[in-house]
Design a protein around this nucleic acid. Structure first.
Length: 485
RNA sequence: GGCCCGUUGGAGAAACGGUCAACUCAUUUGCCUUUCACGCAAACAUUCACGGGUUCGAAUCCCGUACGGGUCACCA
């Protein structure tokens, strides 16, 4: 059996689209499942859309998520070059060959001729289909016009009676009505190939066995097959995948301001979590496992379990999954990934490792960290009503007594760095006062943080704040409470 | 508009003609608990877009309708 080869063929447009990444993932998995090769090819035939630095983003992304390609512009193999603009002469030669094989023809039509036919069709109320007058040119006429320097394109020739049925691994057998196939441009007048053409040439010459791509290509696949047939080439196995949606009716797209892979990473999502999540968008494993490493994905993946309908990208589930990845890290690893988020958020001196420990059980998205710990640095203005928690049954008297008692504890502590001593002393308070735990700790936490929700509670936060600051905040709390009628 | 594809709870989905339609996220509730979160329980589709048909039996097969997406470029 031939070695499985798949390719990821992005256009360098400046960012990594989530849908594209998922396609890359599936391409990678299809190849690696069978110990095949995964190839990176840059499709830059549309010069107008080139964006500088794009190729680097592609390399970076693939490296970050671990989709290591076996061949590519930066990893020459025997099928190079891997950038379409460097393969230009080849396309033209193949296009000329195809003309000889009667699979294509030279066409001199300008936009106005095509537009004229389109308008006429519209007027007549019939579906537009371009009828190329250049079909009737004699070889002499063609040669003459070409040599006189007239601009021309090479257009696919579609003969009546060709087969338009094909098999897709996801969608099954599909037959497209032959009438609707148009004779598309293969080689543009600037000498560049169109995507349609370059794709086929490249896939064939690079010996791609499985073509994985979005299902928007479903209806044009017969045209590609006609090209393979005209050349007498073996067709690849097609695997069309459903789109990744933003909502019920819109695809996820950068143009709509939807997040790219880079955006998600900078928002604090882990590349591994992103890949894991998007694997589940349009594919489902056999069992109930949802957390997969890339290695596990290789084993679990199967084309037959790819779904046919679009999947809506749900950031909530990604958040959850990201949290799972964060929690599965070692404390040290987690701490290291948190560090960059502390630099701007925490200026007071405190044991950051302890902060990480506190955070690890509750962070889902890293970029939430600054907001979660900001109370350490700046003491927010808060409303007294926060002291009165219905479930804790706290009232003015209870809060005041609790804060008073905590104040005494703080003052007695000699070595504030001794976390254990502080905690032991605070833990004695409820019994001492004859209160429930919550009635003591709720007001304390409120006083030292001024926030409704905080990572960590009354037993750990004073430790981070230091003696002086803890006392200062507690005093403020007491003042606030005293002012209440 | 023609053609192609799709339609299972708010989201991802399982089920491949046969008990109460898995599981995960979200939501709600309870437990745990100093808050939130984590963790642990539980609730949430009398029903699989709708209407017919086939069958002893259908989410699963067939037909039609509706809705949604795709495609019809010298863009990929």
């Amino acid at each position: 059996m031939k070695k499985v080869r798949t390719r990821f063929a992005p256009s360098p447009t400046g960012y990594m689209h989530i849908g594209n990444l998922r396609t890359a993932l599936y391409e990678y998995l299809v190849a690696k499942k069978e110990d095949g090769d995964f190839i990176l090819r840059i499709e830059d035939t549309d010069q107008a859309r080139l964006v500088e630095g794009s190729v680097e983003i592609i390399y970076d992304t693939l490296a970050q998520v671990g989709l290591i390609h076996d061949e590519g512009p930066d990893k020459p193999g025997k099928f190079g070059p891997y950038v379409q603009s460097e393969r230009l002469p080849m396309y033209k030669q193949y296009a000329l060959d195809l003309v000889k094989l009667k699979g294509a023809h030279v066409c001199f039509c300008q936009e106005d001729i095509i537009q004229g036919q389109r308008d006429a069709a519209e007027k007549a109320g019939v579906p537009f289909k371009f009828t190329d007058p250049c079909h009737f040119l004699t070889q002499d006429q063609i040669d003459q016009r070409v040599s006189s320097g007239e601009a021309y394109v090479i257009r696919q020739t579609i003969k009546p009676g060709v087969s338009t049925i094909f098999h897709d691994e996801v969608y099954g057998d599909i037959e497209v009505e032959r009438e609707i196939l148009d004779e598309q441009v293969l080689l543009k007048s600037d000498g560049f190939p169109t995507y349609n053409f370059a794709n086929v040439i490249d896939d064939h010459t690079m010996e791609i066995t499985h073509v994985v791509r979005g299902n928007e290509y479903l209806s044009s696949t017969p045209k590609y097959n006609l090209l393979y047939e005209a050349f007498g080439w073996e067709k690849p196995i097609y695997i069309h995948v459903p789109p990744v949606m933003k909502d019920e009716t819109h695809k996820l797209s950068k143009r709509n301001g939807d997040a790219s892979f880079q955006d998600l990473v900078s928002k604090g999502y882990l590349p591994q979590a992103i890949v894991n999540y998007i694997a589940l968008l349009g594919w489902s494993p056999e069992g109930t496992q949802e957390i997969f490493t890339l290695e596990e994905l290789k084993a679990a993946f199967s084309v037959s379990r790819i779904s046919k309908s679009g999947a809506i990208f749900d950031i909530e589930k990604l958040k959850w999954m990201n949290g799972m990845y964060l929690r599965a890290m070692s404390l040290e690893q987690f701490h290291q990934t948190c560090l960059p988020y502390y630099t701007d958020a925490i200026h007071i001196k405190c044991d950051l490792k302890e902060v990480s420990k506190m955070l690890q059980q509750r962070v889902n998205v890293l970029s939430d960290i600054p907001e979660m710990v900001d109370f350490l640095d700046s003491f927010p203005e808060y409303d007294v009503s926060m002291y009165f928690h219905p479930k804790m049954k706290t009232d003015k008297g209870i809060c005041l007594r609790a804060l008073d008692a905590s104040l005494h504890v703080y003052e007695e502590i000699k070595d504030w760095d001794d976390l254990l001593e502080l905690q032991t002393k605070l833990q004695e308070l409820p019994a001492l006062l004859g209160f429930k735990n919550g009635q003591v700790y709720w007001p304390i936490r409120t006083a030292v943080t001024g926030k409704q929700f905080t990572p960590g509670g009354a037993l750990e936060i004073p430790y981070f704040l230091g003696k002086e600051e803890t006392i200062r905040r507690t005093l403020i709390g007491i003042e606030k409470l005293k002012a209440v009628e």
